[in-house]
Amino acid sequence: MAKPSLAVWKFASCDGCQLSLLDLEDELLAVADGIDIAHFPEATTAHRGGPYDVSLVEGSITTPADLTRIQEIRAQSGMLVAIGACATTGGIQALRNLADIDEFVRVVYARPAYIQTLATSTAIADHVKVDLELAGCPINKYQLLEVVQALLVGRKPTLPTYSVCVECKERGTSCVMVADGVACLGPITRAGCGAICPAFARGCYGCFGPSESPNVDSLAAWWDELGVARPDLVRALRTFNVNAPQFKEASTRYAQE
């Protein structure tokens, strides 16, 4: 059986998720053994044209050129996997969705006329059909490995959608919010990172975006009791997954209060 071909694509992003793939040092040889890496500029200059069995797409759609390029990638990909917060929700750069992009361009660039950009930063799934989404800023390399392994044997990858709390309990981390009064987004954030921050006595920053059924209002009310000011709550919801529908809707409401 021919090895499935894999292409890795980048849109507006920091490359951190692609690095997660490179970061699979111990496993990378086995990955390369199981799949044919046909296009992965971050790792190799070798390039083969499509079609590809699987495309991993990092980054968000932010320019007119992105709009056409993502269609082309979709057309030559059997399976398209959006990886990381940028590709799944628009990323931190989706903060622009709440602001005036023209003003940004005027302030940042000496010659704004040369800048072609969209007013919004949006997820890949807002533009083309996405077969699988891997959340996180950055993605968890073991989840990426799980996706690759699952694809190779034809199973559904095990990607939790429940809350980060489950991972805290699994690793035996006591609750930072209950025990220390630390504001934490864990109860409304999707698991997948392994609950790293609470293990270091920090609240969860919500890198993996909303969990499967997030109750933002209930958590917000509790943050009030912990003494978190509403602007700080709004800021907490407006980070890597600012454009995720549940975080966006709630933070917009709180900002208007």
Partner: peptide, 8 residues
């Protein structure tokens, strides 16, 4: 209104 469905 209250339950987070967080599973704690």
């Amino acid at each position: 209104e209250r339950c987070l469905t967080c599973a704690n």
